[in-house]
């Protein structure tokens, strides 16, 4: 159901991006990557936030299974974060002629977060499974959501500004058709992340169940 929704939304988003949204007067066709790059970035934030929420449930309610849900959400977040870095890098190459620029705040932030959440996996796989691992991973995931605004502030303090500011305090600086396309693309990415999250979780649960059954047999 969710998978069908995600597929439909993705097709709609791609159609809108290429046939409905106007070609940018300044950047031309390359601006279209905006409709992938920014929704993917937002989706990655959503995944990290969802992972932290599940981590909070681990610590607070001791909810069984929340640890695995937190892990899968962060896993999805890292995948979408890596995609953000890749699409951002391509956009930077086309717009500014370089693969990497330290003055692009969002990209730098994603690099920091990417390093942080890769360390999450190192932590997770170096500790024996059990309640202690659940606690450690949950605490680290909570540090992550605190790190996002703190790092953002830090990068803002450290850098000058050449990144085109699209969202300002006066709201999005886009034409209606662009904004509608952006919203559909964002919904599509979130639906895709949700689908992947469900599939991975299902696989992990099946795996755990299979292990249990195998142990019962032996």
């Amino acid at each position: 159901m969710l998978a069908a929704l995600a597929a439909g939304l993705l097709c709609a988003a791609i159609a809108l991006i290429f046939f409905y949204a106007p070609v940018d007067a300044d950047q031309g066709l390359s601006q279209k990557i905006f409709y992938f790059h920014v929704p993917i970035a937002f989706t990655a934030y959503a995944c990290f936030g969802w992972g932290a929420w599940k981590a909070l449930l681990v610590l607070w309610k001791r909810k069984p299974g929340a640890d695995q849900e937190s892990y899968v959400a962060i896993h999805q977040g890292v995948i979408f974060g890596a995609l953000t870095l890749i699409t951002g890098s391509i956009w930077a190459k086309i717009s500014w002629g370089v693969w990497w620029t330290w003055s692009e705040r969002q990209l730098v932030l994603f690099l920091v977060l990417f390093l942080f959440y890769c360390a999450y996996f190192m932590l997770r796989f170096s500790v024996e499974p059990g309640p202690q691992r659940e606690n450690l991973c949950a605490v680290y995931a909570l540090f992550g959501v605190v790190l996002i605004p703190v790092s953002f502030l830090a990068i803002r303090l450290a850098e000058n500004f050449i990144h085109p500011t699209v969202f300002t305090s006066r709201g999005p600086q886009m034409a209606t058709s662009q904004f509608a396309t952006f919203c559909v693309a964002l919904a599509a990415m979130i639906a895709l992340a949700g689908t992947l999250y469900r599939v991975e979780l299902l696989g992990k649960r099946l795996d755990a169940r299979l292990r249990e059954l195998r142990e019962l047999l032996t």
Partner: peptide, 15 residues
């Protein structure tokens, strides 16, 4: 493990 966990969190301090 510790440097991997610590350095991303230390970046704002360095800034």
């Amino acid at each position: 493990l510790l440097p991997l966990l610590f350095l991303p969190l230390a970046i704002p301090v360095v800034v």
